[in-house]
Simulated scan of single mutants.
Amino acid sequence: MKFVAFERAKQGTGASRRLRITGKTPGIVYGGDGQPQLIELDHNALWHALKKEAFHSSILDMELNGQTSKVLLRDVQYHPFKQLVQHVDFQRVDARTRLQNKVPVHYVKADESEAVKLDHCVVNHVISELEISCLPSDLPEFIEIDLSGLKKGQSLHLAEVKLPKGVNAVTRGKKNPVLVSVVAPAAEEAPAEAAAAPAPEAKKGKGKK
């Protein structure tokens, strides 16, 4: 994806406020061999781009002063209640340096699994995005995970998923987190809970006078 940025000469709260009034969004691009550079973008174009999943997880082509460079979106600051982007951060990408980035996870074919098709279980997506490490050329737009093999009572862990070539998962805390869990139908859980509950005490009959 490609977007156009312009040099921003002035900085500070007042200058940024005046930019937003004119339909521009202040930002910054940093990293790589160059110095951090102040930029501004057309707000409406940026707003529509941010609605696309790929803009958040793909390497972007940023055109600035007639030159194009590779960058990643690193941070977006939104107004608390207005449809307004207040600031954006981009990081330059070096083709020879591994990067870390979060990418969305797309789960497919759950309806074809034994758990759903035969046992009518509910499939819960525990993780919706995955942090990965790879070279820029290997960065996937998203990771697709096939759930057609799910069975009742089964959970899918990260170690069971084959990641794209050159891509490693970055886990913090749990080494092998659960990605998907399978929950039995509510109709099956209800009788089990009823059986485990104590039987109600019989009401004592009233004695004859």
Rank of each mutant, 00 (worst) to 15 (best):
D94L: 08
H106S: 05
Q100M: 11
I39P: 06
E63V: 09
V126E: 14
M62Q: 00
E40P: 06
S113G: 02
Q91N: 10
Y78I: 03
F55P: 01
R96K: 12
S57C: 09
Y78M: 09
L130V: 13
Q91V: 06
A110P: 03
D42A: 01
K117S: 13
I59F: 02
V122Q: 00
A45F: 00
I39M: 07
S133A: 05
Q67C: 04
E114H: 09
V122T: 09
G31D: 01
H48W: 07
V105G: 14
L60I: 11
L118Q: 01
L139R: 11
V85T: 11
M62C: 05
L60Q: 09
E144S: 05
L72P: 14
H120E: 04
K117L: 10
A49M: 05
R98G: 00
D94H: 04
L135I: 04
R92L: 06
E63I: 11
E144Y: 07
L46H: 01
T97P: 01
F55K: 00
E40A: 04
E40W: 04
Y107C: 09
C121E: 01
K102Y: 11
S58K: 14
N124C: 01
K51G: 06
S128N: 15
D119C: 07
I145K: 05
S69G: 09
I145H: 09
Q35T: 10
V108K: 11
L84Y: 08
V108W: 07
D61A: 14
D33V: 12
L60V: 06
P36D: 07
C121A: 07
N124D: 07
Q35G: 00
L139T: 13
F81W: 14
H48L: 09
K109C: 06
T68C: 05
Q35E: 00
F55D: 07
D146S: 04
L41M: 13
S133D: 00
D94F: 02
V123H: 14
V126G: 09
H125E: 15
S133M: 08
G34A: 02
G32F: 03
V93I: 15
S69M: 15
L46K: 01
V71K: 13
G66N: 10
A45C: 00
L41R: 03
A54E: 13
Q83D: 15
D94R: 14
D138H: 09
V123F: 13
R74W: 08
H125T: 12
I127S: 12
K109M: 03
L50N: 05
L135S: 07
D119K: 10
R98S: 10
K70L: 13
H43N: 01
H56A: 09
L118M: 03
E141I: 13
Q37E: 07
L50T: 02
V116W: 03
L130D: 13
E141V: 15
E40Y: 02
Q35M: 02
R96N: 12
P104Q: 07
E144L: 00
P36Y: 10
E144I: 11
A54F: 08
W47I: 00
R92G: 06
